[in-house]
């Protein structure tokens, strides 16, 4: 992926109004089913919840995608999934075992949660493609989370293999959700290769270190024309909110919920955080400043003594002076 200049323009991507950076500000988007579209000027309408997200023809109703790894048992997993209100959850593919049967698929089926099969555990493009094809047959979905790992110790994505898998699966009609590093250049290449969603890691899988490079995540989100989902590394709710504030469209968490002391409570917290982060990102944070800026008026303050002379360095007002109301100098 180094010194080869691209000989052709990036392919046109399908219009994705939900993620178009030039689209209307979030607070007037009339795309939420709970919001009546308005044609008249006036106060901006506010959706009650973030609108659904379109990913390569698939409609993601809730922007918190859950993982299933790490849960102590199926009952704990069920509590966490229900509390998270997720509508899409990722599962791994493994040999059928008489002990576990098809219980994870049956659980998601019963809860009405869509299945996002993944290629976790694959180290080569060949294995990932075979796994994806098996997943499509077994779970009857074209959605696939592409995950090709470079080595067991870091679990970092192998972007070269990932790019090949993305290209080939997209050509076979899959809808690839592509797990990748937080490299903005790689994110663009994956998008051109056919990724329906780009899923950069916040930090390595299972570390809970949060978003190690917010600058990169923000850059990826601002340039992408497909949805961006932060996947891996989120440790707690504030980090999920941060991902959304940085401009990401959704968040995927697994261990942060399933390995929390109380998975049900953390599932709920993540759900609220993703929603809060989405609103906050659209609301526009205030610029950072080095000096304080009072938010209350300077006029009409209650002060003892001379209001033109604030308390001295020891902070103590003159106890002999009676409180007075300062006058507006005008």
């Amino acid at each position: 992926m180094t010194a080869h200049p691209r000989t052709s323009a990036p392919p046109e991507t399908a219009a994705r109004p939900a993620t178009d950076p030039d689209a209307s500000p979030r607070w007037v988007e009339p795309t939420s089913p709970q919001t009546e579209p308005t044609s008249q000027p006036g106060p901006a309408t506010q959706p009650a919840a973030p609108p659904p997200l379109t990913i390569g023809g698939y409609t993601l109703e809730n922007r918190l995608i859950m993982g299933t790894g790490g849960a102590s048992d199926l009952a704990a997993l069920e509590h966490a999934l229900v509390a998270s209100r997720t509508t899409l959850t990722t599962v791994a593919l493994r040999r059928y075992s008489p002990e576990t049967k098809t219980s994870v698929f049956a659980l998601l089926d019963r809860l009405g949660i869509d299945v996002l099969p993944n290629t976790a555990g694959c180290y080569t493009a060949r294995d990932a493609i075979l796994t994806a094809q098996l997943a499509r047959e077994a779970l009857e979905t074209d959605l696939i989370k592409v995950e090709v790992i470079a080595d067991e110790r870091t679990l970092l994505p192998d972007v070269v293999e990932t790019l090949e898998v993305t290209e080939r699966l997209a050509a076979q009609g899959f809808v690839p959700f592509v797990y990748t590093s937080d490299d903005p250049a790689a994110a663009l290449r994956l998008e051109q290769a056919g990724a329906a969603a780009v899923m950069p890691m916040g930090s390595p899988i299972g570390t809970g270190l949060g978003i190690l490079n917010p600058y990169n995540i923000e850059l990826i989100a601002s340039r992408a024309s497909v949805p961006v989902v932060v996947d891996a590394g989120i440790g707690t709710a504030s980090e999920a909110a941060q991902a959304m504030e940085l401009g990401c469209d959704a968040v995927l968490v697994a261990s942060a919920v399933t390995r929390a002391r109380d998975p049900r409570a953390m599932g709920r917290a993540m759900s609220l955080a993703v929603e809060a982060g989405w609103f906050a990102g659209g609301a526009g944070r205030i610029p950072r400043r080095n000096e304080a800026l009072a938010s209350s008026p300077q006029e009409g303050r209650v002060a003892s003594g001379d209001a033109e002379h604030p308390p001295t360095s020891n902070g103590a007002p003159d106890p002999s002076a009676a409180p007075t109301i300062t006058e507006d100098p005008r």
Binding site: G67, T68, G69, G70, A71, L77, T90, V91, A92, L93, R94, R95, Y96, T100, K101, T102, V104, F105, L108, V115, P117, N118, T119, A120, G121, L134, A135, A138, L139, K145, E147, A254
Partner: peptide
């Protein structure tokens, strides 16, 4: 080989 969904990823 028979495969199915399991917890993971």
């Amino acid at each position: 080989e028979l495969v199915t969904a399991v917890q993971g990823g």
